[in-house]
């Protein structure tokens, strides 16, 4: 066996052993955080505790998390500009797919809206809704439906940034009465959380779609092979 395999095996066994031991020896915490969450729920503006933690109690984490997501797209945009791609020609010229799309797309949009709305009182929320929205966008792309507005950098980037921008703006504006960042007034908390989630859903959906669109379309062609693309994309629609 190669030394690397032996090393990896020993290391992962050691980690598994240590972790297993730690799990076995774990003592229950004295602090009861679920209890505190339950007590604060009436003030959170939503009925589902996970949503309350994500967007109210620990909203700052979510704010930074959206920044991480946006960062990935910024890097993808930068690399596309540095290593320009040819116009995209992905998409299957398949009438069946297009016909199914006509049925699927409204369903996807309804599901997105439902997940977003449901987040207030049952599992759901912005990221789940945004992922479904992105799946719809990917299907469109696979079906070869051109989305010209997505190629307009100003529109695309505004859409990408809207979620984080709204989140930040709400966080700062609620400070005006003299309370800390992200302190929603209790009576508007539900509405503000919904507003943030709505823009986050759109931004997350767009982010995920953009991440797919921003990788090189001739991904399988290393630099030297890029000059003879015609031999490659025979089966692809134009």
């Amino acid at each position: 066996m190669k030394p690397r395999v032996i090393f990896a095996g020993l290391l992962s066994l050691a980690i598994a052993g240590a972790l297993g031991w730690a799990v076995l020896e774990r003592t229950l915490p004295a602090e009861n955080l679920p209890e505190r969450v339950a007590q604060a729920m009436p003030l959170s503006g939503v009925e589902h505790p996970i949503t309350a933690v994500l967007l109210n109690f620990r909203g700052y984490d979510t704010l930074l998390e959206i920044a991480v997501l946006l960062l990935a797209v910024v890097v993808a945009l930068a690399l596309r500009e540095a290593q320009p791609d040819r116009p995209e020609r992905m998409g299957l010229e398949n009438p069946l797919l297009r016909a199914v799309m006509a049925w699927l797309l409204p369903l996807i949009l309804i599901t997105t809206g439902f997940l977003l709305w449901a987040g207030a009182y049952q599992p759901g929320g912005a990221f789940q809704a945004g992922s479904v929205l992105a799946a719809g966008g990917l299907l469109l792309r696979l079906a070869g439906v051109t989305t010209a507005w997505l190629d307009n950098p100003a529109v695309l980037r505004t859409g990408l940034a809207m979620g984080l921008l709204t989140f930040l703006a709400v966080g700062l504006l609620v400070m005006l009465p003299g309370v800390p960042f992200l302190t929603y007034p209790t009576e508007y908390a539900g509405a503000l959380i919904l507003l943030i989630e709505l823009t986050l859903t759109l931004s997350i959906g767009l982010t995920l779609i953009s991440l797919f669109r921003l990788t090189p379309p001739y991904a399988d062609d290393p630099e030297e092979a890029r000059d003879q693309p015609s031999s490659r994309n025979g089966g692809m629609a134009s």
Binding site: L33, P34, V37, P49, I50, A52, V53, L54, R58, D61, T62, E65, I66, V68, L69, L71, A72, V75, A76, L79, G125, F127, L208, L211, L214, T215
Partner: peptide, 25 residues
């Protein structure tokens, strides 16, 4: 049920998605 770890995992998943996407790019 403790909702805090669930929220942490959702945050973690988003971060992992972003990292994976960046790595793939």
């Amino acid at each position: 049920i403790d909702p805090v770890p669930h929220a942490m995992v959702i945050t973690g998943i988003v971060v992992a998605v972003a990292s994976t996407a960046l790595a793939l790019v």
